[in-house]
């Protein structure tokens, strides 16, 4: 470009100003407003039981969102997370029914999902295919494998030992262990993404892959790792679901990828890579859950819920696009 405007310095940019410009602030405001409205609209909304149910509903999916957000930041995308979650369950459940210790079975299942991620990473970085196509194929293949392994019926795992079920069903004090696991995963990855050199390279790669390569970053390795991590976290989530439900469901997680991607994008992750935060993505999850929960409490038809969720996604992305354009 020949003519570029030199931005005038903004000496008045205070911390408050910056806070207001952040994506997260807007999301928190919207969520708070919904809380206030809903607490008037429904007496059940602000009860401990409802809150707990709401958090339980998104906690495990939230773990998948963490992996997806990191992958999106690196410039990738994964449509197979729902199928891989189910496959993790099915592998662990099937092995358990063959008499293998549930902990070992779970470890094998997570390892298998990690290998699937590595397999996708191989196709993306070495063969040079697009994430979208590779993960679309894996989504279908993994789902097929689930149905093949179970004959399409859920595997009832009635003999799971209680210490294993504790992962999904137990509580520590009043708080379900699932929520604690979720919070630990979120806090750990949020911290790492903000502060570690390893994850900074994920940002560089997603922001401008060529510039990253020209800065000595092995971008293919980065993309390979984020792809693998996303599948590994999906596999981990599958195990928690299995412990929670006491069964392995081959049809679990249909459409999960859309929810997960929507949450990450509402939370500020860019589909072209380079930006996004775990905190924002989790707020996206919370927002979608609050909406679902509210609509259910208000007796709105389930069919409306999808329409409303889709509209929220569209609105969030449009607002973001507009703001980005304005900043130039």
């Amino acid at each position: 470009m020949e003519i570029t405007a030199s931005a005038p310095a903004e000496p008045t940019t205070s911390t408050l100003h910056k806070l207001l410009r952040m994506r997260e602030t807007g999301l928190i405001a919207i969520i708070l407003v919904m809380f206030v409205i809903m607490s008037f609209a429904s007496p059940y909304f602000l009860t401990w039981v409802n809150m707990r149910a709401m958090v339980m509903a998104f906690a495990v999916e939230g773990i998948v969102v963490v992996g997806m957000t990191i992958l999106l930041i690196s410039g990738g995308i994964d449509l197979s997370v729902g199928s891989v979650t189910a496959l993790s369950m099915v592998i662990a459940g099937w092995l358990f029914l063959q008499g293998i210790d549930p902990w070992v079975a779970s470890a094998i299942a997570i390892a298998a999902c990690t290998a699937i991620g590595a397999f996708m990473g191989f196709f993306v970085t070495r063969v040079g295919l697009h994430h979208f196509i590779v993960s679309l194929a894996i989504m279908v293949i993994a789902r097929g494998a689930c149905l093949l392994g179970t004959g399409g019926r859920p595997l009832g795992l009635y003999t799971l030992p209680p210490e294993f079920k504790f992962i999904g069903q137990g509580t520590i004090g009043p708080i379900p262990l699932v929520i604690i696991i979720f919070l630990v995963v979120v806090l750990v990855f949020d911290f790492m993404l903000r502060r570690t050199t390893v994850f900074r390279k994920v940002f560089y790669t997603g922001s401008n892959e060529k510039a990253a390569a020209y800065s000595g970053i092995r971008t293919k390795k980065v993309i390979f790792l984020t792809t693998t991590l996303c599948s590994a976290l999906a596999g981990f989530a599958g195990i928690i679901y299995m412990a929670r439900f006491g069964s392995a469901q081959p049809t679990f997680g249909l459409g999960m990828e859309l929810n997960v991607i929507a949450a990450a994008v509402i939370g500020g992750a860019s589909l072209t890579g380079g930006s996004g935060t775990i905190f924002g993505a989790i707020l996206g999850v919370v927002l979608l859950s609050v909406v679902s929960s509210s609509l259910a409490l208000l007796d709105v038809s389930v069919y409306w819920q999808d329409i409303i969720r889709g509209s929220i996604l569209l609105a969030a992305v449009s607002v973001d696009h507009y703001l980005h354009k304005k900043r130039g």
């Binding site: 940002f203 560089y204 060529k210 510039a211 990253a212 020209y214 800065s215 380079g274």
Partner: peptide, 16 residues
Amino acid sequence: GDGIFLDMPISNNVSA
């Protein structure tokens, strides 16, 4: 195209 990370902060660019 491949020199800088346009949408990232100045300091993050310098340290890359």
